[in-house]
Design a protein around this nucleic acid. Structure first.
Length: 344
DNA sequence: CTCCGGTTAC
DNA sequence: GTAACCGGAG
């Protein structure tokens, strides 16, 4: 795909003008600063923007700059991340804050090389921070940008961001006037106009130069991604009570729901009986079945079975009063477990 | 049950 | 390269 320089300037200026008048209101757009942008980009990875908009102000109020997060403990960050999913992002954000505090004098670095050293920062996030917070002419390709650029050039075949897309993004951002307006505008256009299904081409500032619009191929570009088949697994959770307190344990540092808390739970590839669950948890009293539900993730369907029992206060677990549960970082599936037991 | 989305670990 | 990682909305 070869653009004339003239076309490049047409495209970039159209997007910058369009974004200036069409940008949606978001809290981080009121006063953009590098740390706020970094937190926003971590939260927005794989997460829809409206949920980020709810959580971002709370996170920034609690951790207004990298040093305050660096000094806090990871639990506090996980607590504010509850329900957002992909909890490794919260752990990476905490580590990133520590590195910014210790290696970069408490200031978010502005160059791509430094940004890429931060855990949880890949090519997209580095480019987003460098361009949007620091007006560097750095390319970004997220799913929105990929879709817009593939359609603009009528480029079929790549289901996800590819070398091709990064080259086009680089070509355009190099010549744009404001990398902040251009890159954010490109993403905003993909999110609101050049949408995956039924794009609003009549409202698009690029309609006159869009290859897909001309050939009417928008529907097939980009092609759909292959989705993992869902494996069914079984989780057995026991709400264990002793004098108004519930037993909790922390999940592994890696894997599913990394570092989040749960009532004592057995993860299994196969179905287990009540006796097997009791034995694996080394519990004495019979477990009373109180409910079941399914929890669907991108790559698995989890059948949850929930049990209740009374047990002695056991040092293997952390004991939490029922009115203190909100202080504990819990993933959504564990909230469903507690809802079965009628505590929330 | 399908769709949507960046980074990292393997 | 590819699988793992999440949750809410449709």
């Amino acid at each position: 795909m070869a653009f004339e320089q003239e076309e490049i300037l047409q495209i970039t200026s159209k997007i910058e003008r369009w974004f200036t008048k069409s940008a949606r209101e978001f809290p981080w757009r009121n006063d953009d600063f590098p740390w706020g942008r970094l937190v926003c980009e971590f939260m927005a990875q794989q997460t829809q923007i409206d949920r980020v908009a709810q959580r971002w102000p709370i996170m920034l109020q609690r951790f207004p700059e990298p040093s305050s997060m660096a000094k806090s403990d990871e639990q506090g960050v996980l607590e504010l991340w509850q329900g957002l999913g992909y909890y490794r992002r919260a752990k990476n954000l905490k580590k990133t804050a520590e590195i910014i505090a210790s290696e970069f004098g408490g200031e978010v670095p502005s160059d791509i090389e430094s940004l890429l050293q931060l855990p949880g920062v890949g090519k997209y996030t580095a480019g987003a921070i460098a361009s949007i917070a620091f007006e560097k002419h750095a390319p970004i390709v997220d799913a929105n940008v990929h879709r817009v650029l593939c359609r603009l050039c009528n480029h079929a075949g790549d289901p996800t961001p590819s070398t091709w897309t990064w080259q086009i993004s680089e070509l355009l951002v190099t010549s744009c006037n404001s990398p902040q307006l251009f890159n954010e505008g490109l993403m905003e256009l993909g999110a609101t106009v050049c949408t995956s299904k039924s794009p609003s081409c009549d409202d698009c500032p690029l309609q006159s130069c869009c290859g897909a619009s001309k050939e009417n191929t928008q529907r097939d570009i980009p092609p759909p991604k292959k989705r993992a088949t869902k494996k069914r697994v079984y989780h057995y959770s026991v709400v264990a009570e002793h004098e108004g307190e519930l037993a909790f344990e922390q999940r592994n540092d890696s894997g599913l729901w990394a570092g989040m808390w749960q009532v004592p739970t057995i993860d299994s590839d196969v179905k287990l009986t009540e006796a097997q669950v009791r034995k694996k948890l080394n519990l004495k009293n019979k477990l009373i079945s109180i409910g079941e539900f399914e929890h669907v993730l991108s790559h698995r369907i989890i059948s949850f079975s929930v049990f209740a029992c009374k047990i002695e206060r056991d040092r293997r677990f952390s004991w939490v009063k029922q009115d203190s549960l909100h202080e504990l970082p819990l993933a959504s599936a564990q909230r469903k477990v507690l809802a079965v037991h009628c505590v929330t």
